[in-house]
Write a protein that binds this DNA or RNA. Structure first.
Lengths: 202, 202
DNA sequence: TAAGAATTTAACCTTTTAGTTAATCTATTC
DNA sequence: GAATAGATTAACTAAAAGGTTAAATTCTTA
């Protein structure tokens, strides 16, 4: 693999990412990806064989980025509430940088859940560890007795939802204004933490 | 319009709803919708002219159902915390009955936000009223001083997210088991309320 | 620098898909 | 019960889209 081919591959992937995320797997057109990358359509097939493979390459990359850096949360020894403060800020920042990823991932997983098992196998099976951790804190009386799964899903939902529902939120609450919506997202980094804190702190 | 034609129209709409929701607008095939409805493909065009129109009919119907019965919240005179208890239970029940609607709506709005303005125009402009209501309760010291928009979006996100992220949640937290996932959703009706209550009650 | 390998393209091919047409079937009504 | 309007179908068309091929270009290296 020469420098040039590595470069071309990257250009294709970036173009494909853009088009797939904007239009979805089915809505995306190979020709449009080729145009976006400024190359011939046949070159897409030269590098990625077919649409399915190209899509998988893009999806996998996106999935890796979207997967919460749960390691931060799981591997840290600090109290849960401290760790999730870091996590929430960090996670919302990641999504602000890639605002369309969550919707893309969730939609493609919904319409094609078969591959999910494989994707998760070696990745997020340590969720049990996190659940145990929260249970310990509950037994220590630091956190209210709540199903840890409810807590985790609440945190993720509060972080992700504003991006998945972006158009409707931006329109209804901010009259379509970009800046105040961005400000709102930025505020969320502390708001979500306070929200969680108040609701689960014993 | 005869009885038969009304009936056929309904059958088509139901088939279209099923296929569009499962595959998305782009992924759906007119032939598949016709098969699902047990009719000839030409009949789809006879009743709905083209794919775009058929899709719009389905989408509009879905959007109406998905739009929170905000009237309950807005028109009631009871205290905010009481009203949202009713709202959350009711809303989650609606989504349990139509679990794929939220993902469908949000995805189609994301990839096609142009029509949103028209859709919302005569529908949810009374969000201001709700914001004002919350502000009053804050001034009365009943609720912690939080941006009302953050509160509203938190409530909606907590209700909707578990459905949008269904496959991943079901796999990660419930090993793919249907029953325990359903139980989890059912529990949420009270969990989400308590969560909100604890986090905003002054 | 010439041979050979890797990369890129223009022009095709094939299949799929939305949409059309003209004919058939089914009711209704005079 | 024939005429007519509405409902439904089989067969077809045109365009779009994914994918292929063989030739041209560029790069590498002996």
């Amino acid at each position: 693999m020469t420098d040039q081919s590595t470069n071309t591959e990257k250009i294709i992937l970036e173009a494909a990412r853009k088009v797939f995320i904007e239009k979805g797997k089915e809505g995306a057109r190979m020709q449009e990806i080729a145009d976006e990358a400024g190359i011939n359509k046949a070159l897409l097939h030269y590098y990625f064989r077919n649409k399915q493979r190209l899509f998988e390459a893009v999806f996998l990359e996106a999935f890796e980025k979207f997967l919460p850096q749960l390691k931060i949360v799981i591997e840290s020894d600090k109290p849960f509430l401290e760790v999730i403060q870091l996590f929430i800020e960090n996670y919302i920042n990641v999504i602000i940088e890639n605002p369309y990823l969550p919707g893309f991932i969730l939609h493609e997983l919904s319409s094609n859940p078969e591959n999910l098992a494989l994707l998760l196998q070696q990745r997020v099976n340590n969720m049990d560890i996190l659940v145990d951790k929260i249970n310990v804190e509950i037994q220590q009386g630091k956190i209210k007795p709540i199903d840890p799964r409810q807590i985790i899903i609440n945190i993720l939902g509060l972080c992700i939802f504003p991006f998945v529902a972006r158009p409707i939120i931006q329109k209804v609450f901010f009259s379509g204004d970009e800046l105040s919506y961005q400000q709102f997202l930025s505020d969320r980094k502390t708001e979500v933490y306070h929200f969680i804190y108040n609701s689960i702190k014993a």
